[in-house]
Simulated assay, not measured.
Amino acid sequence: MTNQPRILFPGGPEVSALGLGTWALGGPSAAGTQPLGWGARYDRAEAADVFRAAFDSGITLYDTADAYGTGTAERLIGETLSGKRDQITLVSKWGNTIDEEARQLTGQNAAPGYVRAALQASLRRLRTDHIDLYLLHLSGLPVSEAAELLGTLQELVVEGGIRAYGWSTDDLELAAAWQGQPGFGGLEFEINVVHDAPALVELCETHGVPGLARGPLGTGLLTGAHPAGSRITDEQDFRRVSPEWLNYFRDGQPVPELAEALEAVQHVLTSGGRTLAQGALAWLWARSPTLIPIPGARTVAQVKENAAAMEHGPLAGEQMREIDALLLAARAEG
Rank of each mutant, 00 (worst) to 15 (best):
D171P: 02
V303L: 14
L90H: 03
G37R: 06
G183K: 09
P295H: 05
L136M: 14
L36M: 14
H312R: 06
L138T: 03
L105D: 04
L187P: 06
G71S: 14
G19P: 00
H207D: 03
D86H: 13
Q87M: 12
W285V: 11
F55W: 10
L150F: 14
G37V: 15
L135Y: 09
I191D: 12
P5G: 03
L222Q: 01
E145W: 01
A199K: 10
N96A: 12
L123G: 02
H137N: 01
G215V: 13
L156F: 09
L149W: 03
S288D: 13
L217Y: 01
R124W: 03
F238M: 14
T219E: 09
A325S: 15
R75F: 07
R214Y: 08
L258R: 08
L135A: 08
V265N: 14
A54K: 07
L246N: 15
D251F: 05
V158S: 10
T97K: 04
E159R: 12
E173F: 07
M320L: 12
E333A: 08
D129R: 08
K93F: 11
I98S: 06
R214F: 06
A330C: 09
G27S: 12
L156T: 02
H267C: 08
I323P: 09
R44C: 03
R231F: 06
D237C: 10
T22D: 00
